[in-house]
């Protein structure tokens, strides 16, 4: 009986943690992910709540920041360290100033045609209010010139969303599909939170735009919760152009750090584009 009560308590606790940990996102923002020709790639990295545009949190220097790229159909993917391009910036959130990051990735580093899976493996963040650590393994993909590459490849991260559509090639209204993975294995029937970047970054001011792009009529439409199926797959039709963040929470293998709960999450950013008139 005691065992049952204990198991129930842990289940409830995990449920609460899972819910309360929702809505945090490591934002990896670059204005355009589908590049016609190679160019410098600016990227802002901020830890925040994307639909509400805040509150934003201090973010320490990521443990790892890199891309994987495969040149040619039969070569092996290669990994390139992007940490040398990281620069700490001050991000403004009302009266608060938070630590965030900017990377100016030079054209020479992302010059070749194809897909670049850009990855952040951050330090775990201690979320004081919720009493847990959050570590979000986050990805965004940039394509140069339209040549297909390794967009479909799983990177074997502790927590990962593997794309089943190119994340940079989606019309507004198109269905995006992905698989939630834990150390490379599908996670069935786990929740995926989908949020619209409702306050796009103002890159001149290092802050999120104050005016929201849309008003959600109900909280369930701010952070949309969907579930993976038995194969760990999910799909979501993006009704508006812009950025959509997909987050699978607490799917990584580690659940404890310094005696506290650790939520290892997977984040993937997807850009939706309007059909031209």
């Amino acid at each position: 009986m005691l065992k049952k009560i204990k198991a129930l308590s842990i289940g409830i606790l995990l449920g609460i943690v899972s819910l309360s940990a929702s809505a945090h996102f490591v934002v990896m923002y670059t204005p355009q992910t589908a590049l016609l020709r190679a160019s410098d790639v600016p990227m802002h990295i901020v830890f925040t709540h994307v639909f509400a545009g805040g509150p934003t949190y201090d973010m320490e220097m990521p443990e790892r920041f890199y891309y994987t790229y495969q040149q040619g159909a039969f070569s092996f993917p290669e990994e390139v360290d992007l940490k040398p391009y990281l620069e700490e910036i001050e991000w403004h959130d009302g009266d608060r100033t938070l630590k965030a990051w900017r990377a100016d990735i030079p054209r020479d580093v992302m010059r070749s045609l194809g897909d670049y899976q850009i990855v952040i493996e951050p330090e775990p963040y201690w979320e004081e209010e919720e009493g847990l650590y959050i570590q979000q393994f986050s990805k965004v993909m940039v394509n140069v010139g339209g040549v297909g590459g390794n967009w479909l490849q799983s990177l074997g991260l502790p927590a990962e969303i593997q794309a089943l559509n190119k994340p940079y090639a989606n019309w507004t209204g198109g269905v995006f599909r992905g698989v939630v993975l834990s150390e490379g294995l599908p996670v069935p029937f786990t929740q995926v939170e989908v949020e619209y970047m409702n306050h796009p970054p103002n890159l001149d001011e290092n802050m999120f735009q104050e005016e929201p792009l849309i008003e959600a009529p109900h909280p369930s439409l701010e952070a949309i919760i969907i579930s993976t199926n038995e194969f760990g797959e999910f799909s979501f039709a993006m009704p508006k152009a812009g950025w959509w963040g997909f987050a699978a929470l607490t799917v990584g293998p580690e659940r404890e750090l310094n005696g506290e709960f650790l939520s290892q999450d997977a984040i993937l950013w997807v850009q939706a584009t309007d059909l031209p008139e």
């Binding site: 159909a73 039969f74 045609l113 297909g148």
Partner: peptide, 12 residues
């Protein structure tokens, strides 16, 4: 110079 295809096929 680099070439390729939208489907990722080899241009070798």
């Amino acid at each position: 110079c680099e070439g390729g295809f939208t489907d990722g096929g080899s241009a070798q």
